[in-house]
Amino acid sequence: MKKLLISLVSLAALATFAGCGEQPQTITAKPGTSAAKPDDLPYGEGKLYADRNAWQLQLRARADTQNEYKRFN
């Protein structure tokens, strides 16, 4: 009984150890993936853009429209 209790207490203590250090504050999941469920990518099968490159090119072009020096000249 006593032994059981002591081992239980030390087990609980050990478990708490793990929580004490500073945790890396990044999620383990891949980028673009929620911790719980994956976020689908905006390109690929059945999407507007075939691949990442095409999508990025579009976004760049779109961002460039914010440059009125380019728009007017």
Binding site: V9, S10, A12
Partner: peptide
Amino acid sequence: GWALVAMMLLIGGFY
């Protein structure tokens, strides 16, 4: 966290 662990161990030791 460590304080809680230490207290747990202290109590375990005391017991």
